[in-house]
């Protein structure tokens, strides 16, 4: 059974063009899925629906076989524990007035997860490649890449089954980006990953399957290598053709 099943979901704002139209998508346990789209594709809206922060106008989203219902409190508590998100901007995703320990502990405290919180926090810090001794420091004392690691530590501390990433490496420098992609790749061995990005190169490096979203519709989906090697939809072709490569005369 799939971990997430998005079944013909549509969403729109009153009076506006629909943001999402008839979108279907499945994420199995251990899957790594790249959701690629440009601005206005509806990729951020799809994430909000998937997180239960908004409800689709039509269609349903299932998590672990159960319909995702923001009104169902006991389901949501379990769901919040199992699905966590990492954002694009590591400067706005960490509360500047909380120290690292408090930031990472938030899901543990809010979801009333029992156990040795301090131990879980240092495990999470170690898993993202940070020294557990930094727990007492504040976000402004870290670089962008380190902040993103802290945000990832918060996302994995409660042991989620699904990790969502919203352009999680787009704001990072190239060399930092490689390291965070490596980290997410390592983490994705233990959980499913939905990686939302406009950057096809990063998606190609990280995700086994790919979904191309254009103006609220899925135009192409499948195995990443297959789609990139032989794109069928004209939009996918144009998108791939637009990505600049490092080409030299030796080629």
């Amino acid at each position: 059974m799939s971990l997430v099943r998005i079944d013909r979901v549509s969403f729109g704002y009153a009076g506006g063009r629909p943001v999402l139209e008839d979108v279907s998508l499945e994420i199995g346990p251990g899957d790594t899925v790249g959701l690629v789209g440009e601005s206005g594709s509806g990729k951020t809206t799809l994430l909000r629906l998937l997180l239960g922060l908004a409800r689709p106008d039509r269609g349903k989203i299932f998590f672990d076989g159960t319909p995702l219902d923001p009104g169902n409190r006991s389901f949501m508590r379990d769901f919040r524990r199992k699905a966590q998100i990492v954002f694009q901007d590591p400067y706005s995703s960490l509360d500047p007035r909380q120290n690292v320990s408090a930031i990472i502990a938030e899901p543990l405290r809010s979801l009333r997860i029992a156990g040795d919180h301090a131990g879980m926090i240092s495990d999470a810090l170690e898993a993202v490649g940070l020294d557990p001794n930094v727990a007492g420091r504040y976000p402004h004392q870290f670089s962008g890449g380190q902040r993103q690691r802290i945000a990832i530590a918060r996302a994995i501390v409660a042991g989620p089954k699904l990790l969502l990433a919203d352009e999680a490496v787009s704001a990072l420098d190239l060399t930092t980006r490689v390291r965070i992609v490596d980290l997410m790749s390592k983490l994705s061995r233990n959980m499913s990953l939905l990686f939302v990005s406009h950057d096809i190169g990063v998606v190609a490096a990280l995700c086994r399957s790919i979904v191309i979203l254009e103006s609220g519709r899925v135009v192409e989906a499948g195995d990443t290598a297959a789609v990139l090697a032989d794109p069928q939809h004209p939009y996918t072709q144009r998108l791939l053709g637009s990505v600049p490569r490092l080409v030299f005369e030796e080629h």
Binding site: L53, R80, I85, Q88, S93, D95, E106, P107, S110, A151
Partner: peptide, 10 residues
């Protein structure tokens, strides 16, 4: 984003 993160942390 940290407010959204707090919401998705329950």
């Amino acid at each position: 984003d940290y407010i959204t993160a707090a919401r998705t942390s329950g």
